[in-house]
Design a protein around this nucleic acid. Structure first.
Lengths: 376, 376
DNA sequence: CTGTTAGCGCCTTCAG
DNA sequence: CTGAAGGCGCTAACAG
């Protein structure tokens, strides 16, 4: 590992001269153009590589940000991570992964972030309790915190700690509901999975208000437990396909849930979208490959990762205004219309017929209107 | 940022005493139990957090490994990454991402690895030319290199640089072919996409040798260009569904390709697996959700990431034997039988009938025999 | 058992 | 324009 000192000796100059020449900064010590060239030549020949650690120690700047999450392999997180890494590297920063599932607890990850003197931390899919603690602990070491993909619930009541970036799920679900209403559907149900998914309550909120606005009666379907449970599947099929006021369209809280519905429909001998229109949420890659391809609300995962990193880098640079209760940033979603939604007329109230007509729907995308509304 | 010095002053001891007390190492300077307790108490009260950078600089050990890849968001890479991070953190190492698409070229990423004094580097999906260069450059700074998910081609001829971990694709395809043969298929074709995917030639190799062994004539179908090209789709449909010696089963080089086939089959009015059995490769999440669910060869992405990291950590610890042409490690694949494969009798030679019988195949998994053979 | 000294590689500040 | 000193926070070798 060749050091500046060695380069200096070989070039016959002082060590700080090498430092100035290599880092290209013009302040204080000036160096003649000839000397600089000579130093650079020697350094290149010796294969000198600066030691980022030593530099970080003396400058106090790490140029490294942490990505704190419990899972990385799901498509949501992976896409956000990729966007984040892209922006970070473009800004000269490196990304360090802090995995909170592998031995290291969330608490532990915070300590690592501090010990590594990270310049900033991005937290994904964390609960409010942890976020509050993380914000407090990191703030003591003046490490800015940015939060990705979390609920907007209660954001009106208390100032959110740190930088927050999320997709505008409420508007997204609204667009889905309006799309279905425009196709003539009136019995539009919302399908959600029960559990502690606070991140989904905004979607439910969006459904409720969109239905209200259209003057349609809301209707809920709940998925309880794993979708592999046969009893649960029977119950769902009965509710969706065999009740008198069964829905003609289903807005699902997530693509995965929509996949389950497509399967149940096949098992029940119903056709999508002829007998039932289905909308998902997320626009995972698999949404393109289902039969029929899934109409869904696309979340801008890449852009979310990019945006949160941009904001974080900004907060790092202007160290002064250290993440003090900024407004959450809502990124617009996009309704991607594929083959799983269609007109309501055939489905409403009639028994499914065995015909073979499939409505060929071109894949068109409608940008959801980006409107700012504070949800009390 | 509270330092050891400050803790030492507050506790009324020397600074190295604090160092010894906190790091818990017993060598050289001993400290009385009372003193140690006092120091620890003071440190905790002051909220002391060790500076990993300073430690790394003096010890020369970073405890950080780099993950070098061009994309992170695809399911393959994300799952491997997750496995790698898990093992790394369990071993007290952190993972730094070196994204080679975002501004930084591959060459640049190498320099970053060196400048950051990384303890080791994992490279994913890189070509041989780069790997050779990377190995050479990193070796000059005694940074071990590990390679993930790459072709096994030519491994016999020249020693592979660094640690290599990959899935046993040859055996995997073999298992798929035997599975189809056991179902009575004799016209089993291999579907591959043309292009510079050297990683796939091992799969083709596996197909060829498995067919040879069974005494069946191999048959190829090529996907040229994007699957959205209508002309190409027509050509494929003709070859797969309308030629006289059309295949009754298709082994696809990847799940994504299999998805395309499922779509083409639907468009052509053919039923899978009644008229055509289809096998994929990878076992992506979406394979569970297609109609019918896709029979496919599962690659152990998580384990690949784990294994490569274990090997890399081992190489780091015993710094001496620095990655000198070790044998590549082949991890066994697993055939996952779902609904897209079925008996051959109905399909062979007859026109597709419009019946509604769907063979219900339980999801059973067969471990492929792990056998070591050097492919000349 | 404890305190003192030295140095990791680099940047900054001061004398020449 | 250049050289010589000092220190970032920590560990590792010495003396007491």
């Amino acid at each position: 590992m060749v050091t500046m000192k060695q380069v200096a000796q070989a070039a016959g100059v002082s060590q700080p001269a090498v430092s100035v020449a290599l880092s290209g900064r013009r302040q204080s010590a000036y160096i003649s153009a000839a000397t600089r060239r000579r130093i650079l030549a020697v350094a290149r020949k010796m294969g000198y590589q600066p030691n980022a650690l030593a530099r970080a120690m003396v400058t106090g700047q790490t140029k490294v940000i942490g990505f704190l999450g419990s899972t990385l392999s799901n498509e949501y997180t992976a896409r956000m991570l990729e966007g984040a890494v892209r922006v970070a590297q473009a800004g000269g920063y490196l990304m360090k992964l802090l995995h909170t599932d592998s031995g290291a607890s969330e608490q532990n990850a915070l300590h690592i972030a501090i010990q590594q003197r990270l310049a900033g931390v991005i937290s994904v899919h964390a609960d409010e309790a942890f976020l509050a603690k993380a914000h407090a602990e990191l703030a003591r070491h003046s490490i800015p915190l940015a939060i990705l993909d979390h609920t907007t619930l209660n954001l009106g009541s208390r100032r959110a700690p740190g930088i927050r970036v999320l997709s505008d799920d409420e508007a997204g679900v609204g667009a889905a509901v309006r799309h279905l209403a425009a196709l003539g559907h009136t019995r539009i149900a919302f399908l959600t999975a029960v559990g502690p998914m606070t991140a989904w309550s905004t979607r439910e909120q969006g459904y409720r208000s969109a239905m209200d606005r259209l003057g349609l009666p809301p209707q809920w379907v709940y998925l309880r437990g794993p979708a592999t449970n046969p009893a649960e599947c029977r119950r769902l099929k009965a509710q969706i396909f065999r009740t008198s006021n069964r829905p003609t369209a289903l807005v699902c809280v997530a693509d995965h849930v929509a996949m389950v519905i497509l399967r149940l429909a096949r098992e029940a001998g119903r056709q999508v979208p002829k007998d039932l229109s289905v909308v998902g949420f997320a626009d995972l890659e698999m949404a393109q490959y289902t039969d029929p391809p899934l109409t869904t609300v696309a979340q801008p995962f890449d852009r979310m990762g990019e945006t949160v990193t941009q904001r974080l880098l900004a907060a790092i640079e202007r160290k002064s205004k250290a993440a003090g209760g900024t407004q959450p940033i809502l990124l617009p979603t996009r309704l991607v219309v594929r083959g799983s939604t269609g007109p309501a007329n055939a489905a409403d109230g009639t028994r499914p017929s065995g015909g073979h007509s499939r409505t060929k729907v071109k894949c068109l995308t409608l940008a959801t209107r980006k409107k700012k509304r504070s949800t009390g």
